[in-house]
């Protein structure tokens, strides 16, 4: 009597698994193709946004509009979260997620007045 041979490939568990993983890998690779094509197609939109930024001298994204000191994170002053009184706690959700400022700049603007003081 002939010994039973291996099952045909598609019926084996490894076959189904390899097909699934292969398909998912193709989809994964396609995400990179999609990313390249989409960003290339969006070049005009990006250019339009850049042109508006240049035309209106804009400095920030309009993502955080809930409080005035979070609307322009690159321009905000350090004391804004304590605007009501020095011990006022931050109460806007965005305020706790957006750092009030990137900190003193290269000139160390907090120190700048001292460095150039007349004394």
């Amino acid at each position: 009597m002939k010994a039973p041979g291996p099952l045909p490939a598609p019926w084996r568990k490894s076959g189904a698994f390899l097909w699934t993983i292969g398909l998912a890998t193709v989809l994964w690779a396609l995400t990179f193709v999609h990313a390249t094509l989409t960003t290339r197609a969006a070049a005009d939109d990006l250019h339009r946004r850049g042109a508006l930024v240049s035309q209106l001298d804009l400095t920030d994204f309009a993502l955080f509009t809930e409080a005035r000191y979070t609307r322009h994170p690159s321009q905000a002053d350090l004391h804004s979260p304590f605007q009501d009184h020095p011990l006022a706690l931050e109460h806007f959700p965005t305020g706790s997620l957006v750092p009030a400022s990137a900190g003193p700049s290269w000139t160390g603007w907090l120190e700048a007045p001292a460095a150039s003081s007349p004394e």
Binding site: T59, D60, F61, P73, S74, Q75, V98, P99, S101, A102, S105, W106, T107, W109, A112, P113, A115, S116, S117
Partner: peptide, 22 residues
Amino acid sequence: ALALPDTRPILRDEILRTYDAL
């Protein structure tokens, strides 16, 4: 910063860095 000590200059690089950090 030296001529007008009561001002704060903000460079474009700093704006970009702010967003990177943010």
